[in-house]
Write a protein that binds this DNA or RNA. Structure first.
Lengths: 146, 146
DNA sequence: CTCTATAATGATTATCATTTTCATATTATA
DNA sequence: TATAATATGAAAATGATAATCATTATAGAG
């Protein structure tokens, strides 16, 4: 938690921006929330603690969090941007059940290595990736079978 | 080309929908366009051939194309949905240069196998995936270096 | 071929997430 | 504190997509 707050302060300073109570509160709430969160969900949480904060501020803050590398966007293809904390968390990809929308965070070192290799083969220097695996989870397979 | 048109006809029939000149034209243009295309880009192309076609029809058609398995959505995270032909084309993933937005279609059989394995490990039956690799292409690396 | 029920069309409006605007308030600093 | 720049919140604007609805076109029955 502390590390992220420091990182954000560094970012703010470097960019000649300013720390404000609103930003501090939004950062705090964002970091405490695990998993992914949309701007609106975050706004709802923020409002509970300070109803005077506007949602434009939340949107603006999410942009700053992304730029600073503290948050990163996760696309689910439903037209809503979601963000997750990118600091103090392991990198992971997403395994999603297309029946019940359950989501599991996964990592596979071998895949990561092959991604590097694949990019290099095409002359690219890999800087990041997003991988979404879609399938049917155990429970939903049972449901369908029964 | 022919195969996709037949597939769409089968889909249309099975769903008790109807083939129309508009749908035929949009399908034709969609199939001829390689790479990915947004609803608006497709609409612009369609308008050139028949200015009377409305964009609602294009949106509706893209939905049908997705449902029928002829098109599939590609997310680029810029808030615009793009589609690409999914028939008569090899499956592929995307390698994108974050500097110049150049995009290369890639496939790696080893990665595909590991994805299967990873999903299975979590009890999922894999039905599909999306993988986006982000990096800096050769030219842009040079540019930065020079 | 004609009739008929139903689906498709296109123009328009609505929706929903996100961004911008702008007047006001707050901040860091001199 | 005074000042210049940035941040805020409310509201309006935007942009992509979806829904509405009156009209038109289609497939199949006869």
């Amino acid at each position: 938690m502390k590390k992220a707050a420091e990182l954000f302060n560094d970012f703010i300073t470097k960019k000649n921006l300013r720390m404000t109570p609103q930003r501090a509160l939004i950062l705090d709430i964002f970091l405490k929330k695990q998993g992914h969160i949309s701007a609106e969900e975050l706004y709802d949480l923020v409002k509970k603690r300070d109803p005077s904060i506007g949602q434009a501020t939340v949107y603006r803050m999410l942009k700053l969090l992304s730029e600073s590398g503290i948050a990163r966007a996760v696309e689910f293809g439903d037209g809503v941007a979601r963000y997750e904390s990118h600091i103090g968390r392991e990198h992971h990809d997403h395994l999603i059940c297309t029946e019940c929308n359950k989501e599991v965070e996964v990592v596979d070192e071998d895949i990561e290595k092959l991604q590097e290799r694949l990019a290099r083969k095409h002359g690219f220097k890999l800087t990041g990736h997003k991988m979404y695996l879609y399938g049917i989870c155990r429970q939903c397979q049972r449901k369908k079978g029964g």
